[in-house]
Each structure stands twice: as C-alpha cells, then as structure tokens.
C-alpha cells in the first residue's frame, strides 16, 4: 500500500514534524520550549498544505502562525510572571483530560482508517485560484458578508485586547 516516492517521503517528514512537535508541546515543562515545538508543528502543517497543492494556505500558515502567533505566544510567556521552569504539576485533572483526548484521538483515527481509500478526488485543483478567491471575497454570491464581518472581528479583537491589557 505504501509507495516510496519523494512525495510520500516528504509527507512522512512533515507528519513527523507535526506530530512530534505536538507531542513536544504537551510534554515539555519549559514554556518557551513548548512554544518552539509549536512552531515546528505548525511548520509541518504548512508543509502538508504544500503537499496538498494549496500553496496559498501554506504560506499563510507560516506567515500567520510562525511569523505572528508563535511570537505572540512567546511574548505572552515572557510578560507573564515567573512561569519559567515550573516543576510541580498544578493541574490535578490531567488524567481525565488525558482519557478524554485519548478517546477523541482514537475516534479520529478510527474514522480516518474507516474512510481510507474510500475518498476519491472530485475535480482537479485549479492552478491559479487566488484570483478566484479574491473575486469570491467581494461578490454577493461569494463571501462578501463573512469578508466584512472578518474585518469587524479583527477590529473587535484589537479593541478588546487593548482594553484588557491597559486595565490590568
């Protein structure tokens, strides 16, 4: 079933980045290391997008998650008081969380295994679809309302964060 080709090899490398990074995030006790593992994981996802021939999503993934959100997370860690190198476990509910997420993960894996090979591509990926995307953003038939709501959402997010951070 497994074929050894450049694409499959790069898929496995990227999957390793994603899963390994994700595991690193939850297992390390050092918050900054967790942030760095998160970057690795998100980069792996960007690589998977490239393999899915969605370069726009891949670039956005790197730009927004690696370039902005991970930096924001690191800064958040640093402006938070003394969170570096916590030794004891604060959260006593972690076994329950582990069971729930384990069950969810098992369910997802079962779902994927059940569907494996059953999905067939419907149509070819259009080569230059960014222009179509841009057009869809600003037409009634497309996503005009979500597009404008997104800008209001960004505005609200910024106002909220400024209010909260200046209040403290």
């Amino acid at each position: 079933m497994l074929t050894f080709s450049p694409v499959s090899v790069s898929f496995f490398i990227m999957a390793l980045f994603t899963i390994g990074g994700g595991l690193g995030v939850v297992t390390t006790r050092n918050l900054v290391h967790a942030a760095l593992f998160l970057v690795l994981s998100l980069f792996g996802i960007a690589g998977l997008y490239v393999l899915l021939e969605a370069p726009y999503l891949a670039v956005i993934q790197v730009l927004v998650y690696v370039g902005a959100i991970s930096i924001l997370i690191t800064i958040t860690v640093m402006v938070t008081r003394r969170l570096m190198g916590i030794e004891e476990t604060y959260n006593r509910q972690w076994p329950i969380a582990a069971i729930i997420s384990g069950l969810l993960g098992a369910g997802l894996i079962a779902l994927v295994v059940a569907q494996f090979g059953a999905l067939t591509p419907v149509a070819d990926v259009p080569v230059d679809n960014i222009e179509q995307l841009g057009r869809a953003f600003v037409t009634h038939q497309g996503f005009l309302l979500p597009f404008e709501v997104a800008s209001v959402l960004l505005l609200a997010a910024m106002i909220g964060s400024i209010v909260i951070s200046r209040d403290v």
Partner: peptide, 24 residues
C-alpha cells in the same frame, strides 16, 4: 511560485524566530 510575494514574507518571518531563539 504563484504566491511569490507572500512567500518571501513568510520565509523572512523565520528570521524573527531565530532572533527570539538566540536571545532567549
């Protein structure tokens, strides 16, 4: 690549990450 302009923005964001890593 069809997203060349964004590509170089994305790649240079690794530079910021490198600086943060070095400093930390």
């Amino acid at each position: 690549v069809s997203i060349g302009v964004l590509y170089f923005m994305a790649v240079s964001s690794f530079g910021i990450m490198a600086i943060l890593m070095a400093g930390w």
